Computed example of a mutant assay.
Amino acid sequence: MKTNDKVETAIVALLRHSLVDQLTFAKVAREAGVHWTTVKRYFGSKEAMHGRVRAAEGSQHLGTRERLLAAAKQVFKQRGYDKATLDEISAEAKLTKGAIYWYFDSKDDVFLALMDVVLTDLLREIPEMVEQVFEQPDPEKAIKAMVKHEFQRCIDDPPTLLYEFVSRRRDERVKQQLDGSFAMLFTGTEEVMQALQKRGKVSKQVDARQAAITLHALMNGTILMWAVAPESVSLLDLADTVATTMVNTMIKQ
């Protein structure tokens, strides 16, 4: 199979459990079995990759279910769960409302399926990113770059969908999915921390489980404070402080 075909096939496979704007060069490269620079050369930029994939949404390569979930993501982000309607989702997907009922029984089912996609992607992405950062020759510099990048990404595309999930935690099905997903996230990050400790990248004086939870609390807690009070909290101004706290807690002991 030609390299270009491998890349295209990898994207189709990833879209079974990820949305278009969650695709990265690294993810596509891992799925295709090529180096990430190969994917970058093929598309030029991440924005160009996302644009080309979205342009193909009407083709046979992207399934109807993926199109519906991509549309649901946009509608739930813009309108919130309570105001969002199945008519709006089908219109965003450029499909009939009947297409929704072919795959989902209700708006709740669409919402829970979207949660599964977003949280599964979170489980795959964050532990891998943490491991890559701590493995860098200068982990302190890499951690600062990571925090700034993630904070800038939140500014450019606020994580309103995740807040929407949390706001519906009273729903028992949502609660179970959130509890299960975040338990797996903490465990996955803990395992990364333990592996890094064995390689001397993270202090062995640190409890790996507590370090994993602290890392997510520092990042997500700061982002939450910014979301609640954006006029009082500057994410980018806090990036170095958050990164330095991580370094002092996990490396310099």
Rank of each mutant, 00 (worst) to 15 (best):
V110W: 09
D171E: 14
E128A: 15
D157V: 08
H149M: 07
T249C: 09
L161R: 07
R173E: 07
D5I: 09
Q197H: 09
E66D: 06
I100K: 02
A195G: 08
H216Y: 14
A212P: 00
R16T: 09
S59I: 02
I100D: 03
D156Y: 03
A91R: 06
V110L: 09
I126G: 00
K46R: 15
P139E: 11
A84N: 04
V12T: 12
K40N: 09
M193Q: 00
F25C: 09
I155H: 05
Q22C: 02
L185P: 13
I100C: 03
Q194F: 01
Q194G: 00
Q177Y: 03
F111S: 11
I11E: 11
Q152N: 13
G188H: 05
S90I: 01
P230E: 09
L161M: 10
G98T: 08
V12F: 06
A13M: 11
L123R: 05
R209L: 12
M129S: 08
T160C: 04
F76E: 10
Q22I: 06
Q152A: 07
D121V: 01
V192A: 05
L185D: 03
M1D: 04
H17F: 00
E172P: 00
H61M: 08
R52Q: 15
R30T: 09
G200R: 14
K252I: 02
I100Q: 04
R52D: 10
A32C: 06
N4Q: 15
Q176V: 10
V117W: 02
R153T: 04
K6D: 10
Q136Y: 01
D108M: 05
D207S: 11
L114V: 06
K77V: 10
T24Y: 05
D237F: 12
Q78N: 12
G44F: 12
D138R: 11
N248K: 15
V53D: 07
G188Q: 05
I126V: 13
E140F: 00
V39W: 00
V118Y: 09
P158I: 05
M246D: 05
R67Q: 14
L215M: 13
I223K: 01
V118E: 15
F186R: 01
G221N: 04
K141G: 08
L95W: 07
A145G: 06
F186A: 10
H61I: 09
P159N: 04
G200D: 14
L23A: 10
K46N: 06
A71C: 13
T37E: 05
A72N: 12
G80K: 00
Q205E: 11
E31W: 01
A217T: 10
M246V: 10
D21V: 06
L14P: 09
E135N: 12
R199E: 15
L123C: 11
A227F: 02
Q194D: 02
E47V: 01
L19A: 02
I126R: 08
D179V: 14
L235K: 03
M193L: 13
A113Q: 03
V202Y: 11
L162S: 02
I143L: 12
R65Y: 02
M250G: 13
G221V: 08
F43K: 13
E128S: 11
Y101C: 13
R173W: 01
A84M: 04
F43R: 13
R65V: 08
G80M: 03
K97E: 07
D87W: 04
K6G: 05
A48H: 12
A93E: 03
G58V: 07
A229E: 08
A229P: 02
R170W: 01
S181H: 07
